[in-house]
């Protein structure tokens, strides 16, 4: 499966990822991005990573 990594220094809490894939991403009450435990559609997650305006999201293949 694919795994998403967040660069906290780059994230601007734009919410674009949550807009595209609310099952995978959520901004908490402090506006900090949380990755949700669900296993969403990889294509949707890939689109969210591509669309992230701050370039804070990257896809990483999980080793196991």
């Amino acid at each position: 499966m694919t795994r998403v990594e967040v660069d906290r220094d780059r994230c601007i809490s734009s919410g674009v990822c949550e807009h595209l894939a609310p099952e995978a991403f959520e901004l908490d009450d402090d506006g900090v991005l949380q990755l949700l435990p669900a296993e969403p559609d990889p294509a949707v997650v890939a689109e969210a990573v591509r669309a992230c305006p701050s370039g804070a999201l990257t896809l990483a293949d999980r080793a196991h």
């Binding site: 809490s13 919410g15 949550e18 506006g31």
Partner: peptide, 15 residues
């Protein structure tokens, strides 16, 4: 910019 944006972004989350 990053500092102030973090402050105001809290008020503009999708939730």
């Amino acid at each position: 910019h990053a500092k102030i944006r973090r402050i105001v972004a809290k008020a503009f989350t999708p939730k």
